[in-house]
């Protein structure tokens, strides 16, 4: 069995000043090298769980380990191990891609020469070379998504958390992003991904978990889950397990 990239044991989390817990005794393991997809309806707890895994939220109970490091105890050293691509554009719109990469590269702990090399590589891969010195605020949504992703991977993280990385982009950009994610996964980066784009998830993920009402209700390879629940696609499986009712 491969080592755990993420190991969650008996996780309990409640938002401050709220009486209802988001998670109670939640357990989950993501192996190194996996392309793991976390899915669920709105309000199921996907983003909260991802925020707990990345240390953005402090959990009250249980443990979360990234590559064997407890995130609550060694936060800053653990932060070197992973990258995060939030759903929102998480960079400075007033700056160019080069300036953003230089700043976030430094904050990721890279040296000047490393930043320079990695910046050139990422601009090339993300097709941003021609606009390298233009302010990001002038970019299209697809270009901003690529900048967002480039910043998340500048320090070659061993685990990459992606919160809906392709929302609002055209087919070409989506294809380019998915292709790049598969490439870095082959090079050893574990992907932990959430999205509402289930067809895209089928293409990208080799392991999925469905979360609803703060509980993991299914967790296996996509093929096995489809066999177990006699479904022919992730969308059918999703409806089967989470029901048809609207979620807020």
């Amino acid at each position: 069995m491969s080592n755990a990239a993420v190991l969650i044991k008996d996780l309990g989390f409640t938002y401050p000043r709220q009486s209802t817990s988001c998670f109670t005794n939640l357990n989950l393991e993501v192996a190194e090298g996996e392309r793991f997809g976390l899915f669920g309806p709105n309000g199921a707890g996907k983003t909260t769980l991802m925020n707990c895994m990345t240390g953005l939220l402090k959990y009250q109970q249980g443990s979360i380990q990234l590559l064997g490091n407890e995130i609550a105890h060694q936060k800053k050293s653990v932060n070197k191990l992973f990258g995060f691509v939030p759903q929102d554009f998480s960079f400075y719109q007033e700056l160019s891609p080069v300036e953003n990469l230089a700043f976030f590269g430094a904050w990721s702990g890279l040296q000047k020469s490393e930043i320079k090399n990695k910046t050139e590589e990422l601009l090339e891969v993300m097709s941003l070379t021609e606009v390298r010195n233009k302010k990001v605020e002038k970019f299209s949504g697809g270009m901003k998504r690529r900048v967002n992703l480039a910043i998340g991977v500048i320090h070659n993280p061993r685990i990459l958390f992606l919160d809906e990385p392709t929302v609002g982009v055209d087919v070409h950009t989506r294809h380019a992003i998915i292709t790049y994610l598969k490439k870095i996964n082959e090079e050893g980066t574990t992907l932990i991904y959430t999205s509402h784009q289930l067809s895209e998830a089928e293409d990208l993920c080799n392991k999925v978990a469905l979360i609803d009402d703060g509980k993991i209700i299914a967790h296996d390879t996509l093929e096995q889950l489809l066999i177990d629940h006699q479904e022919d696609g992730l969308e059918g499986l999703f409806i089967n397990l989470t029901g048809h009712s609207y979620r807020n």
């Binding site: 240390g55 953005l56 800053k76 995060f84 998480s90 976030f104 904050w107 990721s108």
Partner: peptide, 8 residues
């Protein structure tokens, strides 16, 4: 949000 996830 991103700054908070970085080792700085």
């Amino acid at each position: 949000v991103r700054l908070k996830t970085l080792p700085t």
